[in-house]
Amino acid sequence: MYSPLIVAEALLNGLMLGAVYALVALGLTLVYGVLHIVNFAHGAFLTVAMFGVWLAWSQLGMDPYLSMILIVPAMAALGYAAQRWIIGPASRGADNSILLVTLGLSIIIQNGLLALFSSDTRTIDTDYAFQVVELGPLLLSFPRVVGLGAALVTAVVLWVILNRTDVGRAIRAVAREKLGASLVGIDVGHIYAVTFAIGSACLGVAAALLMPVFYVEPNTGAAFVLVAFTIVVLGGMGSVVGALVGGLLIGVVESASSLWFGDSLGQIGIFLIFIAVLLIRPTGLFGARQ
């Protein structure tokens, strides 16, 4: 058995990993909640954002955390364009078509990146990647502490946007009643694309938080997307609180199962949870029964 200190550190690290997972899942659940679609290209978008952070560092010498000021708006623009001009028109709103169009999009992005950057893994060296923060007897990794903090800030910003701004009100109106929203003058197509933009912007933040501790190659996002789906399903499709709680929970589970079963089998734990939740309670912990 492991000493309680190691277990506590593993669990706390899991919590902080989970915060970044939660960020990825936030974008996914937001899009689901408003558009009622599963965006399969979400993982590929994350890869794009991570490559963006890497490029900003390697070409412009920008600190990964600082590069958020470039990456987040760029990702928002990408998300807006993808929904407005590709996913929306191509799928005409049919559920299965959206799923397939976003799958096609993810294949294009993933392999486009493979053609451009080859399958080499790329990392960013920073002075603080291996720094630790001492919390009583516990040693916590600095980038992960930053990750947890930034994820919570992003969640609060998201909450403010959704609840305290006109755009947020419009988004919630469209999510609730599409036809009614268009009757009072809301441009539904625009709001859909804005929702997509916000979801993708979350990925920009997540990418900047991930890069100091993680690597990027064209398939990196694919590994995250299933985890993100698990979180979204666990928390309840469309529930922002659910995504946060689900993300933290999954992070802890992964950390704990890696500690006991090793890294490769840690992933299996996540998929089994995913399958179990879908089979037993597909509406998740915080989702309303449809």
């Binding site: 590709i86 169009v101 096609g104 999009l105 993810s106 294949i107 294009i108 392999n111 053609a115």
Partner: peptide
């Protein structure tokens, strides 16, 4: 990866 990019475009 180029062939798969083309596949993706064809799918969409």
């Amino acid at each position: 990866g180029v062939d798969l990019v083309v596949f993706g475009v064809l799918l969409i």
